[in-house]
Amino acid sequence: MKQQSSPTSRTDSPSYGFAYLNEQTKRMIRRALLKAVAVPGYQVPFASREMPMPYGWGTGGIQVTASILTPDDTLKVIDQGADDTTNAVSIRKFFRKTAGIQTTESTDEASIVQTRHRIPEQTLREDQILVYQVPIPEPLRFLEPRETETRKMHALEEYGLMHVKLYEDIARHGNIATTYAYPVHVHGRYVMDPSPTPKFDNPKMDKMPALQLFGAGREKRIYAIPPYTKVRSLDFDDHPFEVQKWDGACALCGETESFLDEVILDDQGGRMFCCSDSDHCGKRRETAGDSHAA
């Protein structure tokens, strides 16, 4: 996170600060980030700014990214695993314009990955940062709408209510039917909402070498998981945490271990499953193509 004090010649629009936000704002967000890293899983309030996009489009993630971005960074943005959806494309474009940085679709080449609702299949490295866009950061809100009360519950580690939700799941569906935003216990202390990533990705958060930062713009909260932190998905002794499994493989690359999306092909009921992580899928197909060529 190198300091960038003034607009640089690399930005197209000199009227903006580097990466859109002014330096005071970035400083404020960095302070919140430092606190969040120091207290893993704890929701740090921050003075979220109005961003040139609607709430729910990643205003929290974008402010975090803007605050940690340096001119040398390479940014990857994914939306549900894909690099080529509107939200991902717009955010990449936004930072190319306001920070003049490099962007990429390759997980390998990125130094910062901003994500909406997926974690890349490829294991992230220590020199990478994963930034999550978070709609609702409070995992307890489902059963306790009072913010004063949920804060107290976090402070006193009163997390029984999380299990009430899981209990209710099993009672209604026979298993824990929460498949995304599946609550996790971070570093044995705070219970945290991992944003609406599928629970398939939860195990990747555990002891991840990369720094994980979470930004909720509308709710004005930032939280973090430092590298190599223990992250445990909540469960019952007799209903242990499990990830989704698919019977088939990716129709495009043949992967059997990745998170698959169902794609409807026509109105005759035709459909296929393929990797949600478009970069992962593409790379596998490339490699397969190369080996064929060789």
């Binding site: 059963l143 209990y167 019952f236």
Partner: peptide
């Protein structure tokens, strides 16, 4: 807690006190 089942209502205090075995 009107939004969860009778069982969850009764179980809440147990879970608040550390019960983690669904069937029990």
């Amino acid at each position: 807690r009107m939004s969860v089942s009778a069982g969850a209502n009764i179980g809440e205090r147990l879970m608040a006190n550390g019960a983690r075995h669904y069937s029990n």
